[in-house]
Write a protein that binds this DNA or RNA. Structure first.
Lengths: 185, 185
DNA sequence: CCCCAATAGTTAGGCACCTAAGCATAAATA
DNA sequence: TATTTATGCTTAGGTGCCTAACTATTGGGG
């Protein structure tokens, strides 16, 4: 029962057909810019808006995807990161490599521990530290979901050729580099 | 990375130089695929993983961005959508155009109403319905944040030329179309 | 040697998002 | 017309993410 707490997310998400509600149009961008007499480039604004919308949709789809396995994106990433590092890591290290706060790691580990996929052990080196370890059940879970997981990841970008994927990867990296520009200043 | 919301815990991250924590590498993808003897294309998996990571980072950066104005991404989108439709719309319509559940709209409107940026009025046509209206304060808020908002949106994609942005927009749209493939089946 | 700053982890409070269940009212049907 | 079904919105409960504050331990400087 506890394992299904996340699963219920997958029932919803009626795939919107036709006009994507969360996908802004060039006209919208133009109108919004014109409304206040600004000089921004509508195309640039459109790309940024579409990107943010895509990110949100992708995030939700990711939750649905991992929900199939009784996991969430965050829990999967933690499990996977643990596996990549010999199945043992401190919460602080996990927070750093996952790019989330330590408080978030506490919550993720709480959930995974309830499911028996990881366990906490006191650190032998640091009296204040813990070590999160991947249990046999956790390793099994990763092994079981791997085939479907990777197949679906592939299908996500299946609409692009190898060359297009390379291009996309390059452009995406440069946009990601621009994220700081969005928050700085 | 994403900004001030997360920046602080980077400061106490182990002075680990190197790769962006939340950005997977090709080697990681290869290793994960090899671990279970799968046949997935590492490049495709990498692109998908990077995209999801980018989406998450972008979402967080967006929260930082809108946080500057005392808003959140969801609240801004609701306000903006309202403005685009004459400043008046029902919660159901808002939910549809924002691509979120009606329950989420209830929460967003609750918050915006507390701030005085929107107001609820009973519908004159449907006894069970409400109408959410943009208040003068809400319109002011949108006007005030517009210059900085659009400037930052532009700077997000400032690293790309006009042609590259067009290419990116096209590729992004095709990946978005592949999102359904991720959840279907 | 002791005190205090830095660090590890958790807890508390907040927002956004979800599903499911609860009301109220409207529309459709018997 | 009366009953059933559908729709509009809210509420309850759950998850992930955050910041800030709190506890415990480590370790450096007076």
């Amino acid at each position: 029962m506890t394992g299904d707490l996340i699963r219920h997310h997958i029932t919803f998400m009626t795939p919107h057909q036709g006009a994507d509600p969360a996908s802004p149009t060039l006209d919208q961008a133009r109108r919004q810019i014109a409304r206040y007499g600004l000089t921004a480039d509508p195309q640039a604004v459109l790309v940024a808006a579409r990107l943010m919308a895509a990110g949100a949709r992708l995030g939700q789809a990711g939750e649905v995807h991992f929900g199939r396995f009784g996991l969430s994106t965050g829990r999967y990433r933690l499990l996977s990161d643990l596996e990549d590092h010999g199945g043992e890591k401190s919460p602080s290290q996990l927070a750093a490599s996952l790019g989330v706060s330590r408080a978030t790691v506490t919550g993720l580990v709480d959930g995974l521990e309830r499911e028996g996929l990881v366990a906490r052990r006191p650190s032998t080196e640091d009296g204040r530290g813990n070590v999160v370890i991947l249990t046999a059940r956790g390793a099994d879970k990763l092994r079981d979901l791997a085939p479907e997981h990777f197949a679906r990841m592939q299908s996500l970008v299946g609409g692009l050729s190898v060359e297009e994927r390379a291009t996309f990867l390059d452009l995406l990296a440069r946009v990601v580099a621009g994220i700081d520009a969005l928050t700085e200043g």
